[in-house]
C-alpha cells in the first residue's frame, strides 16, 4: 500500500532502540510497518529488512560488545530507494572504516556474511566517526 508515501513524499521515520538482538527483532517489526516501507515493493522490503538486520545486529554485537547502548535509525523514502542513517555511540569501526564485505572463502563458513550482504544490497555507503558517534549512511536502491 503506497498511500502514505503518495501523500507525504518526504516521509521520514525515526526509531531509537536498545542494541540487543531481541530489541533489534522488535525494532525491525516496527520498521517493516513504517511509512517509508509502505512505498516499497515486497522484494525491496525483503532486501531492506535483510540489510537493516545485518547493520543493527553488527552494532549490537561489535560496537556495543562491552556494554549496553542505543541505536538511532532514520529512514526516508526517496526516488532512488530507501535512504538510511544509523547512529550509535559504541566503539569506532576497527581501522576507521567498515569491512569490505568479501564473501567468506572457506568451504562452510558460519559467519562473515553480514557485511557482504550489506555491501551487495546498498549504494553510496559512507561511515563517519563524529562527536563520539558512529554514523552510517546508505541507500537501498529501489
Amino acid at each position: 500500500m503506497a498511500l502514505a508515501a503518495d501523500i507525504f513524499p518526504d516521509i521520514t521515520f525515526r526509531l531509537a532502540l536498545a542494541a540487543d538482538p531481541v530489541a533489534v527483532r522488535t525494532g525491525l517489526a516496527r520498521i517493516v510497518a513504517s511509512g517509508p516501507f509502505a512505498a516499497l515493493s515486497a522484494d525491496h522490503r525483503a532486501t531492506a529488512e535483510i540489510v537493516l538486520a545485518e547493520v543493527l545486529n553488527n552494532i549490537a554485537e561489535h560496537a556495543y560488545s562491552s556494554g549496553p547502548g542505543d541505536i538511532l535509525i532514520q529512514l526516508a523514502a526517496i526516488p532512488a530507494g530507501l535512504e538510511c542513517q544509523i547512529a550509535d555511540r559504541g566503539r569506532e569501526m576497527p581501522g576507521g572504516s567498515p569491512p569490505d564485505g568479501v564473501l567468506p572463502q572457506e568451504d562452510l563458513p558460519e559467519g562473515g556474511f553480514g557485511w557482504y550482504l550489506i555491501r551487495s544490497l546498498t549504494r553510496g555507503l559512507t561511515y563517519q566517526r563524529k562527536d563520539g558517534q558512529n554514523l552510517l549512511h546508505f541507500v537501498i536502491p529501489a
Binding site: 529488512e49 535483510i50 545485518e54 545486529n57 562452510l108 558460519e110 559467519g111 556474511f113 553480514g114
Partner: peptide, 16 residues
C-alpha cells in the same frame, strides 16, 4: 519468513 546471517551461520553449523 526471515533469516539473517546469524541464522544462516547456524544452519551451516548444524550441517557441520
Amino acid at each position: 519468513q526471515f533469516l539473517d546471517s546469524s541464522g544462516l551461520g547456524a544452519i551451516v553449523a548444524v550441517r557441520k
